[in-house]
């Protein structure tokens, strides 16, 4: 576990072969690879939830169906909020790699706020459904729906807490190798949640609309 001061870049990104800051301490590349693999496991976790949803989608037990339930404007707004936050998250990493602390903090905060708006909107949507009698306990379809979408929402909520913790550290210690690594990793997480959402959008909401 000796510190590697300067690593030889092989597949490094854009800036002329030098590795970005987040790869420079010895634990940087380890954590980043570890996190990618974590994302791969999370893919399978969501796959299991999606599989359950597809199997139980038509098991509505006389209750509301997906077509009756989903409102296009609601999930479209959620989608745009999340896509935009993914974009601002990428801008944060860009600012970080340019060593611009102010912009980094700014974009992270914007991302965070968009995330909060997303979760708020989703909660609102859920409460609406519940008010119409479409609760988790109503049918297998609804159990699967709330669990799949809710698991994603819980991931986003966790991401918000995590990102807030990193914002505090950047404000305190600036952009160093440790913070760069943390920011890069949380941004991976955030984009990943966007990817999952794209599939929720497509195979949950749009499938409901189309069917």
């Amino acid at each position: 576990m000796t510190t590697v001061a300067e690593k030889r870049p092989t597949n490094a990104g854009h800036d002329g072969g030098r590795l970005p800051l987040e790869y420079t301490r010895h634990e940087g590349p380890l954590n980043i690879l570890g996190f990618w693999i974590f994302l791969a496991t999370d893919v399978v976790l969501f796959a299991s939830l999606f599989a359950t949803y597809f199997v139980l989608r038509t098991h509505v037990d006389g209750g509301p169906t997906d077509k009756e339930l989903f409102g296009i404007s609601g999930f479209t707004i959620e989608t745009v909020l999340l896509l935009t936050s993914s974009f601002t998250g990428s801008l944060a990493v860009y600012a970080m790699r340019n060593g611009n602390k102010k912009r980094l903090l700014g974009w992270l905060i914007v991302t965070l706020l968009l995330g909060i708006a997303f979760v708020g909107y989703e909660l609102h949507e859920f409460l609406d459904y519940a008010a119409e009698g479409a609760t988790m306990q109503r049918s297998a379809f609804l159990s699967a729906f709330f669990t799949l979408v809710g698991t994603h929402g819980a991931h986003v909520t966790f991401g918000i807490i995590w990102m807030a913790s990193i914002i505090v550290q950047i404000a305190r210690y600036g952009i160093d190798a440790i913070n760069a690594r943390k920011t890069f990793i949380v941004s991976l997480y955030w984009h990943f949640l966007d990817i999952i959402w794209i599939f929720i959008f497509t195979t949950v909401y749009m499938m409901g609309v189309v069917s």
Partner: peptide, 22 residues
């Protein structure tokens, strides 16, 4: 565009991992 997917400090193991996951 966002995730710097091809970046790595060595062999790109993460791509193999994600491909397997998918």
């Amino acid at each position: 565009f966002f995730m710097h997917f091809t970046e790595s400090d060595g062999p790109r193991y993460h791509i193999v991992g994600l491909a397997l996951g998918a």
